[in-house]
Design a protein around this nucleic acid. Structure first.
Lengths: 346, 346
DNA sequence: GGGATACTGGATAGCGTTATCTGAACGCGC
DNA sequence: GCGCGTTCAGATAACGCTATCCAGTATCCC
């Protein structure tokens, strides 16, 4: 229980070990290039001094000296949604293996905040910036984001974007469209014919891809979806809950309400129950994302397993391992789960 | 699309504005104490230069200069569990309001890593360290953690612990015990008589509190729980799943399986279904924590709503707003939800 | 044994920022 | 009109660290 008011610095370590400060630095860092690590004797003396003093390097000082932090910024819309939390977990795992830390930042799904945040990041000198916020078809917004990202890249940070986009940086994608179409086909093959779709906010790229694929899959089986049976809403439980209102008059004519996220599906189910519609007996509700818990409590639930956990690892791979290939893309595979059974992909 | 290889520094700003570097610093920081902020004219010149160059301060340099980062470390076991994600979300909200950032670190529920991590934190000079990992009754482990925390405190960091503990630092707690007892009473009042309990790892303080309260509540209604009907397992879905095996022979004699977390409850439910036991008809399964989604898909599910989102805010309040009162404690209230209805507390 | 070559470890500098000090200019009261 | 206090902004130093340079010693080969 030392009462020293200040944490030990390298200078303290050096003094205790009786060497110069740079020598101590070299000893602890194992020598940078070549093998300037100092003699074994000096080295162990320094190591012991460090242990004795409970020395821990100051990342701030290293950042300032080296011009770059040993850090990856991970930008998400909001953290307390299942998808983000899972991605963050994945990226932290992957980062740990590479010995870097992750700085998680949220935009609160506010595009103004998103831009401010990106400006702020300039001063933070991260190794890389991973954008995991949702991309839209709003050209002005996307251009503004791109502009910020270009500056960061010019400053030497690697940029990686998660999800389909036109920003022109290395990207991690998942085949939302294809998986959605397979899900639709699977449901059609199970005899379902009349579909309503609960989509995300209009202009949200992921939602567009999923709905597009789903509609394609249905078309493949000769099924059409009426324009008015596609509801746009927030990508959340409450969004799904509210979406049911828009379908209120047509519920009797629908076999399946396909929500484009599990969270929305839950909201739909909750509202349907309130309305006295039983699921899946009267109407089957399907999701997208595969929140693991749901399969346990909703037997036979259909959804698409999106490997969110792997997004982070893939992003770091692009950010840290690759060369300067701006076109680099990692495409992940999503697995449709129809009535509880994962669909074998060919 | 500037092609400057380096981010702008304060020196660049000062040069463009035609002032000295310290003057620029003062202008941008609005003058520290008193109001050494420079003349309005100089000030706006500097601000414009900063805007032009897209300047953003380097937190690393500020940290090194000021001896302290504008940062709170938030230590959790693992991030991809519902509880941690929710707490993190809460702490990030609260931190944002106070203008500090949050550095999330995970221990992967490994007590060795926990100690290493705490040592590492010495170099990082955080304003505060919030421990949100699970506390145990393992005296040696707790002492080791305390030792690390004491050093950090001596170095000037505020320490806050979440959850019941004997570490001797400001603490945020929730009345797990009382809420559990109310839940038990509510279930008993609904006519349930024969209980089995799925608890967390033995020695985990939160699990002990919850089980203790639950058993007390039952005793209040004249119901006893056989020692062998309390199963200790991991605090997770899979833990709950496996716990059912230990109760296998006695399932016919049980009305309620009370799991001490929602995640475990889900695992229990999944396993029971596989065994052909229907819930809640044959056996009712209850949880703890209140994962919001579950109430929607499991109508009438009983659990306890723990205000996880508020933990972070309370922790920051203790860490940043209060004086040096080491005994400071914020006690939050949990709300039992019996068969879907929140229990009014008196 | 002499000169070239390796290696070792110390001295120095510099990263971007802000607290403190210093000097200059200005306004004010008598 | 002179001394005083006040404001303002520049100069300097310092935070903790590591890359670079340099000098000294050990090693080697002929």
């Amino acid at each position: 229980m030392s009462k020293s008011a200040k944490p030990a610095t390298l200078a303290d370590v050096a003094r205790l070990a009786g060497v110069s400060v740079p020598a101590a630095s070299r000893a602890l860092n194992g020598g940078v290039r070549g093998k300037q690590s100092g003699s074994p004797e000096l080295r162990s003396r320094v190591e012991e001094a460090a242990r004795t003093l409970g020395y821990s390097v100051s990342p701030a000082a290293q950042t300032i000296k080296g011009g770059r932090a040993n850090t990856v910024a991970f930008i998400v819309g909001d953290i307390d949604d299942f998808g983000s939390a899972t991605m963050i977990s994945g990226v932290m795992h992957a980062a740990e293996e590479r010995g870097v830390s992750v700085a998680v930042r949220t935009t609160r799904d506010d595009s103004l905040r998103e831009l401010e945040l990106l400006t702020q990041l300039r001063g933070e000198r991260h190794l890389a910036v991973v954008m995991a916020t949702s991309r839209t078809t709003d050209a002005a917004r996307e251009a503004a984001v791109k502009e910020q990202l270009v500056v960061l890249r010019d400053h030497g940070a690697r940029i990686v974007v998660i999800g389909d986009n036109d920003l022109g940086f290395p990207t991690v994608t998942v085949d939302n469209r294809h998986a959605a179409s397979l899900l639709a086909e699977g449901l059609a093959d199970a005899g379902k014919r009349r579909f309503a779709i609960v989509s995300g906010p209009s202009g949200e790229v992921t939602a567009l891809e999923r709905v597009g694929g789903f509609v394609e899959g249905l078309a493949e089986r000769g099924i059409a979806v009426d324009e008015q049976d596609v509801v746009h809403t927030e990508f959340s439980r409450d969004g799904g809950y509210r979406a049911v209102e828009h379908l209120r008059g047509r519920l009797a004519d629908v076999d399946v309400i396909a929500a484009m996220s599990d969270a929305m599906a839950v909201g739909v189910i909750a509202r349907l129950r309130e309305l006295g519609v039983s699921t899946p007996a009267d109407i089957e509700v399907t999701g997208f994302d595969h929140v693991p818990m749901l399969g346990d409590v909703l037997p036979g639930f259909s959804t698409v397993e999106v490997p969110l956990e792997r997004f982070g690892g893939a992003a770091l791979e692009l950010a840290l391992d690759d060369g300067d290939d701006l076109e680099a893309t990692i495409a992940l595979t999503a697995t449709p789960i129809v009535h509880g059974a994962p669909l074998a992909r060919v």
